[in-house]
Design a protein around this nucleic acid. Structure first.
Lengths: 168, 168
DNA sequence: TTGGAATGTCAACAAGGCTGACGTATTCTT
DNA sequence: AAGAATACGTCAGCCTTGTTGACATTCCAA
């Protein structure tokens, strides 16, 4: 174990020990499970899955976004996303409009029902996040965000920083 | 948007606004993707998936752990875990020994090859975690961990706090 | 000896990833 | 105007990883 290797002293600033890193890795695993648990339960009632939640979330966040844009944010294939979007449109949760400037594009929006479901889902997820934030305090939250941002892929960070706005 | 609703003043301590919470939710999503990206690439070379990685990780962490114990940590069905374990045993990465005290139990250990792969995987994951920790600094790391721990389910937190030690 | 616990296994199914191929508008480029 | 490129949809098939349900085996304990 490199943990007790005195040769790497300069690097072993307490919070960089293998043990600390392992704890962080496990914390991510367990926390992510908690993070998705509440929405998953709600989605099950609708016969939908986590993939639908992600689509709803980002369409809600960027109304009028195009399929291609959503594709690059979610990082899945168009076939995969299409299956999800088809269901959402069929269920009357999402509306797909032909673009005005470029008629090849489809602009996506939540319907009233879609907004309602999205609200339920994000309320559940926010409740947990809020509770975690509250119990940890503002300083911890800042650190939390800093570490998460540093953990993203370089290419995905732009998607996070500023999601492209959908035309309309 | 409830964000600017002055009626909820007591609760709107800046870091609890809907906008802040949404950012946190998205940060979790994107960061988790980065978090798993490196191991996933390695696993693909071996024809293995993320489920195998999780099993390897926790077997490495608690050598001699039982199937049942692993089951409760991973939170999947025995059929699901069994499929994963069978592959790992077949590939010579994990060894399953009949328990001595209770011969119904199977105690799991990594083989030499298993240790090698686990090392490769966790090195990749730790590298990213280390980079994130380093760029964020010790205070941020403490906050990161605090928030993650608060975000876990009550029932899963014990698994995180102290993983049961495998006998044998 | 018998009930229950721990484990393994078979079968079937679903979600949600993937690749490849193809079709159809539409727009851009030459 | 013709052809290339783009945006999107769709069909078909495959994989991983989760789920249920049913059932066999082995072994511990009452």
């Amino acid at each position: 174990m490199a943990t007790n290797d005195p040769a790497r002293e300069g690097e072993n600033l307490l919070f960089l020990t293998d043990e600390q890193l392992r704890k962080g890795i496990e914390a991510m695993f367990f926390a992510y499970r908690g993070f998705t648990a509440d929405p998953d339960r709600i989605l099950a009632d609708y016969g939908l899955g986590r993939a639908h939640h992600r689509a709803l979330h980002f369409i809600h966040r960027s109304p009028g976004t195009t399929v291609n844009n959503l594709l690059s944010i979610l990082g899945v294939t168009k076939q995969s996303l299409n299956r999800v979007l088809r269901t959402l449109v069929e269920e009357g949760l999402v509306e797909s409009r032909v673009g005005q400037r470029d008629r090849r594009e489809r602009h996506l929006r939540l319907t009233e029902a879609g907004r309602t479901l999205e609200q339920r889902l994000s309320d559940a997820q926010r409740d947990r996040m809020r509770a975690a934030y509250r119990s940890a305090g503002p300083a911890a939250v800042a650190g939390f965000r800093q570490v998460l941002e540093a953990m993203m892929d370089e290419e995905t960070r732009p998607s996070y920083e500023t999601l492209r706005d959908g035309g309309g």
